[in-house]
């Protein structure tokens, strides 16, 4: 059994979910539609091209997009970029899973930088897909809009800007620690900050 980030008895309700799947490969599409049907999705929107997918984006309020990177009329990366900049609300903010068979590092980075929430390597089994959907359902990353990038915040950890570089955001703090201001704290004041619990030695 695959290690899941939830209990087997946790309930999920995808019966009203509007899922869009864009994949030009017949078998790839079949795998995803069967998988989502098993998860309880009633009628996924199945598209074999970026143009078809964009038509659905304009008409329906979607909950998840699953996009193959190799669409016949446009790459999945360009489709996601266009979606994120489309200002079609709420779909421009919708979670996007990008899928690809061959996933060299350059393609994964492009997937992250085009505004996808996650890049998944094929083949994807049901447990991995469910795990990813559960993760999307708990996602709380801000959405970033800038001249170079529109999509979920690419920073998963708050590590500040790289050493020697100025931050690009207004709330980025400097990596350099300034001179101390005020007197040193006593141990009891430090203890108050950390609230240490009693330890029996």
């Amino acid at each position: 059994m695959v290690d899941l980030p939830y209990r087997a008895t946790d309930r999920i309700n995808l019966s009203c979910a509007e899922i869009l799947i864009a994949d030009s490969n017949r078998e790839g599409m079949s795998i995803l539609t069967q998988m989502f049907a098993g998860f309880g999705v009633h009628t996924p929107h199945c598209c074999s091209s970026a143009a078809e997918a964009m038509e659905v984006v304009k008409k329906r309020d979607l909950n998840i997009l699953v996009i193959d990177t190799a669409l016949p009329d446009m790459s999945g990366y360009d489709f996601v970029r266009e979606l994120r900049r489309s200002r079609i609300k709420p779909n421009c903010f919708v979670p996007v899973l990008l899928m690809s068979g061959h996933t060299p590092r350059s393609m994964v980075l492009e997937g992250r930088d085009c505004g996808a929430n996650f890049v998944m390597a094929k083949p994807v089994n049901a447990a991995v897909m469910l795990k990813r959907i559960m993760w999307l359902a708990t996602e709380s990353r801000d959405f970033i809009t800038s001249t170079d990038y529109v999509g979920p915040d690419r920073r998963f950890q708050r590590l500040g800007p790289p050493p020697g570089q100025n931050g690009r955001r207004k709330d980025d703090l400097s990596a350099t620690v300034g001179l101390a201001k005020g007197p040193d704290l006593s141990q009891s004041e430090i203890n108050q900050l950390f609230k240490p619990s009693k330890v029996n030695l």
Binding site: R7, T9, R11, I12, N13, A17, F39, L130, I133, A137
Partner: peptide
């Protein structure tokens, strides 16, 4: 998506 999935009903994981 999270709000939708937490609606009553559905199925266990």
């Amino acid at each position: 998506l999270g709000e939708l999935m937490r609606q009553p009903g559905g199925r266990s994981a």
